Amino acid sequence: MSTSDAEQQTPPAEVTVPGRYELVLPPGWVRIPLRQGTKEALEKVLFSHMGQVPEGIPKDDAMRFRLDMRRQLEKQARAARRNGGLDLYLPVLPRGGIFLMASFIVAEMPIGQANGIPQQAVPQQAVLAELANEDVPGGTAAEVHVAGAPALRRDYRSTPDEEKLASAPQAVQQVALPTRRVDYVIPVPDDPGRWISINFSTPGDGDIDSEFTDVLVELFDAVVGTFKWSYE
């Protein structure tokens, strides 16, 4: 019995690309979608989740506090969306009477693309190796595994530019704090040229090298440890 060449050929298996990702959040943290539903999510956060206010704020000032918080969150969401952001994550319930000053953003990264158009695919391992070898002033970069696949983790400090800060409005100067930052760069499986980043930032307790700040970084790393792709 013989078989023709056509019969022997097996059609290539269809490649399935993940449609979204999933994370397990700590208690008191929420997701703010940045591509659609942002306004509704902010409304829910401000008037449902924030039933409490920090210690020291009179009840009569609770509404003003929520409105000020809303303006800050809207500003942060707009900036994140402009930078390719998909989702913004925030702690919205006080812990021990205080609100944690921390957040992280999941965003698309245009590695291997020009003007949004995929170019010739560069091997993911080569991209990770190049990123790991880049200089990270005041920090470190290392290859890690996220969702069972190679990724990159960068840990560094960010301090305000003193010259630019001197000419900034007083209100900006008052909130410009040194921050501890951790970034993860993750390739999308079976989709060359598509990457996402997870970018964490916190001023901690005012000391970006304190034990408290380290605990917040460890919490973020634990959240990224729950990251997985969804093919639904």
Rank of each mutant, 00 (worst) to 15 (best):
A168F: 11
V127S: 05
P94V: 10
A176G: 02
T213F: 06
F47H: 10
G84F: 13
V30K: 11
T16I: 15
Q120V: 14
K39S: 06
Q52L: 15
A77W: 10
Q120K: 14
L86I: 13
V30E: 10
F200T: 11
W29P: 02
L152C: 05
A41L: 07
V30Q: 12
P27N: 02
P11I: 04
V182C: 10
G148K: 13
P33T: 07
P58C: 02
T179G: 01
P11F: 09
I196A: 00
K228V: 01
G96F: 13
D155F: 15
G116Y: 13
A149T: 05
R64G: 01
D61T: 00
A13W: 10
V185D: 06
R180I: 06
V217N: 00
L100R: 02
I111C: 03
E55S: 11
G28V: 07
E134P: 00
S4H: 10
A121C: 05
E108A: 07
V144G: 06
R157S: 09
V224F: 09
G148I: 06
A147P: 11
Q119F: 05
R71D: 05
S158R: 14
I117T: 13
Q76A: 07
I198W: 00
S167I: 04
S2F: 15
D221I: 02
R20E: 07
D183Q: 12
P189R: 08
S230A: 13
P187N: 12
G19I: 09
H145Y: 04
W29I: 04
